[in-house]
């Protein structure tokens, strides 16, 4: 339904509100909320250094960088007894070894232990790592004069009926086109076990310009197709609801995004999310255009 919301927003822009609305910055004075511990990270099927951040929350309008928590013991273990211990990098970021990868079908548990300070206690979360969707190829197709659709060919895994996909894209390997929490595309596919994906639109790009998702002739586009859990899909969608434009006639009251991090023997509240997911990728160059 993200597309529906997009349509609503777009239609409002062209249908009146866009003609009469003006904007300006304003000052809002909010009280300081109690500081919480924020734990965020994931483990994927990629072989790489996986990161978990352990930080404290800050005032919403504070202009400083997030404050990391140093000295925590951070581990990720699977349901077969393997444990990866993460080492502290910088500003509350903890990294696994570069050879670590997650395995489809396993369940992973994150554990963060802080022995002293305001956040002393034990924090943890558990996530299943879903089976991956098979990616045969990704192609590009012009939708209209300014929009390029990314089409996905492949197959959904047979291991489960309901699938949740996160689509994240980069150009030229490292420039994010939508690879942020606010921009990921999320798909919820019911009864899709083993289903063939035959050129479905999974992402849109802008042809030229300086938008975050703009691409130009010659760019190489990498599309990551991540099979995620329902809990993480809900987390992303709810976070996006809070991070995107809200309008009084279409938006309900804002609300905190859920967390799956639990606390034990801790006095401070905790927020954030830990998840495991599988990842497949497809690459395509922006030149071999199909369609009109």
């Amino acid at each position: 339904m993200k597309i529906v919301k997009h349509i609503i927003h777009s239609f409002l822009i062209v249908s009146g509100i866009g003609f009469v609305a003006c904007s300006e910055r304003m000052e809002i004075d909010v009280d300081d909320a109690p500081v919480q511990l924020a734990v965020y990270g994931n483990i994927t099927t990629d072989t790489m250094q996986h990161a978990i951040t352990v930080q404290q929350t800050s005032n919403f309008f504070a202009a400083s960088q997030p404050v990391g928590i140093s000295g925590a013991t951070v581990t990720i273990s699977d349901n077969e007894g393997a444990t990866f211990t993460l080492t502290e990098s910088q500003n509350g970021e903890y990294l696994t070894d570069a050879a670590v990868f997650g395995v489809e079908g396993k369940t992973y548990t994150l554990k963060v232990v802080i022995v002293s300070g305001d956040f002393a206690g034990e924090y943890g979360a558990t996530s299943y790592l879903p089976y991956s969707a098979q990616v045969d190829s990704v192609t590009l197709q012009r939708a209209d004069t300014r929009t390029i659709n990314g089409l996905l060919y492949g197959r959904l895994p047979a291991e489960s009926d309901n699938h949740y996909l996160k689509i994240a894209a980069y150009k030229n390997d490292h420039v994010s086109l939508n690879a942020t929490l606010a921009k990921f595309n999320i798909f919820n596919i019911e009864n899709g076990s083993g289903k063939t994906i035959d050129g479905e639109v999974c992402i849109n790009f802008r042809d030229g310009g300086d938008n975050a998702n703009s691409i130009e002739q010659g760019d190489i586009i990498t599309v990551h197709v991540c099979s995620i859990t329902k809990e993480y899909a809900d987390y992303v969608l709810n976070a996006q609801e809070e991070l995107q434009w809200s309008m009084p006639i279409f938006s309900g009251p804002p609300a905190n995004v859920q967390t799956n991090i639990s606390a034990k023997n801790a006095s401070a509240p905790v927020c954030g999310f830990f998840t495991a997911y599988s990842k497949q990728s497809g690459k395509v160059g922006f030149s071999a255009m199909t369609g009109k």
């Binding site: 909010v30 919480q36 924020a38 919403f60 942020t180 929490l181 927020c271 999310f273």
Partner: peptide
């Protein structure tokens, strides 16, 4: 209104944390 009062960093975005419902 319900205003954001604090935030944390996650995958390139700040996730807001809110006051009580309609506190402001």
């Amino acid at each position: 209104v319900t205003y954001p009062t604090s935030k944390y960093w996650a995958e390139g975005s700040y996730v807001p944390l809110y006051s009580g419902r309609n506190e402001y």
